[in-house]
Design a protein around this nucleic acid. Sequence first.
DNA 1: CGCCGATTTGACTCAGATCAAGGTTTGTGG
DNA 2: CCACAAACCTTGATCTGAGTCAAATCGGCG
Lengths: 241, 241
Amino acid sequence: MSTLKHIDVNHLKVHCKDCNLRELCFPHGMNDEELSNMEAVVDQPKPLHKNDFLYRDGDKAVALYAVRSGCVKTMTESANGEEQIVGFHLPGELLGLDGFADGAHTCNALALETSSVCELPLDQLESLCHELPGLQRQMRRIMGKEVNNDHKLLLLLGKMTAEERLASFLLSLSARMEERHWKDSEFNLSMPRQDIANYLGMAVETVSRLFAAFQADKIIEVDRRHITIIDMPRLKAIVGE
Amino acid sequence: MSTLKHIDVNHLKVHCKDCNLRELCFPHGMNDEELSNMEAVVDQPKPLHKNDFLYRDGDKAVALYAVRSGCVKTMTESANGEEQIVGFHLPGELLGLDGFADGAHTCNALALETSSVCELPLDQLESLCHELPGLQRQMRRIMGKEVNNDHKLLLLLGKMTAEERLASFLLSLSARMEERHWKDSEFNLSMPRQDIANYLGMAVETVSRLFAAFQADKIIEVDRRHITIIDMPRLKAIVGE
DNA sequence: CGCCGATTTGACTCAGATCAAGGTTTGTGG
DNA sequence: CCACAAACCTTGATCTGAGTCAAATCGGCG
């Protein structure tokens, strides 16, 4: 029955105004009317499985994405095939800005675990920004955040020791957990050691050894992918407060 | 006499439509009408001297800037006072996006030599984008480029050897010289070795040694700040084509 | 000319990479 | 439910690219 089907679809779609990520996502700073206008064009495609690509380097950029659940990593590839992970995107975080420069993506984006995303189609973004000043302002904020974030990473890769990098990584995750109102001192890593190492510009063995050292120093507890921060002040001290 | 004064001001201001950087700068992709609307709000403050700050970390973001002449570097500072240069901005290139996230800059921007810039005030940017779809599109392109550029740098700092980094740096400068219709195989560095080293995440001594090595290998010629690329193919081969 | 900051060069050191094994967890098919 | 394979992670030993330290040289400029 078509009526039933219609109801099912509505049940499946999470409305922006009810989404517990709204304060972190596109909707931030938009009023109710703006919100309902926006969510009319937001699509929620079916979930990605672990290791599914959301998009690939060279793909036409058709949308901006917001992670709804799970975790998506983005990475650039060099001329000689080496990869550098440039971001891990948690629920409420956006990705896809790399396609703005010339209409095609310059990164690969792939799900680290089963993940769902929201899609804001680019062809509607322009007119939508025109109608909704709140969205235009939010777009600027989002891009500014992306740039600032990349600058933090440049500082990390350019100037920090391996120890400082890993501490910095844990603190960044911890802060983002808190933003999401999850526990900030106990969480699971959704990426393997190899990906952490790649992201932080070091060898897997170094990551492993540093986890062991932090644990021996009673700064964190590590159980496979499960991390517990037991001495936050000392972790902060490592990166220089 | 006020008439004379008025004429003088007009003479001093370079119009966007006559600027030889227009293909690289804000105006890219805008029609004549859009251009004249835009340039009405673009200011051209007096030139910066060497080592003048254009803005500092923490300053309220009041404008977006385009370099008209000279060279401006931007750098982030870490908690413990270390600095990482995140960009050298040549004529036609923009800076100031780091202030979009929360209205305050998170970088220092400082002139490496006597430089002039154009200013696009932020309070007028929003309404201007609303009126000029060409500008809105261009803003998106600009931000996308900034993001892609930062990703290239992350790859450089995360995965390349010192030799690859310096080669990559020279090739980037060379390509940007060409964009500006200047010689792509002979140019002057506007930054000291120390800044190159900082930007590329290595020690000054390493930069110096690599310049010497490249010169010994007949790949480039170095005379103080003057660089001549004499074997472009080999330079490209170093970074892996 | 003489000073000062920028650059180069040489000698030595070290943080972290690489190489080599071994252990553990997860998933798969029988 | 077990056997086996494939990831993933850890730990130890060794090596090396690039950093650090020290000193000489260069180039501008008052």
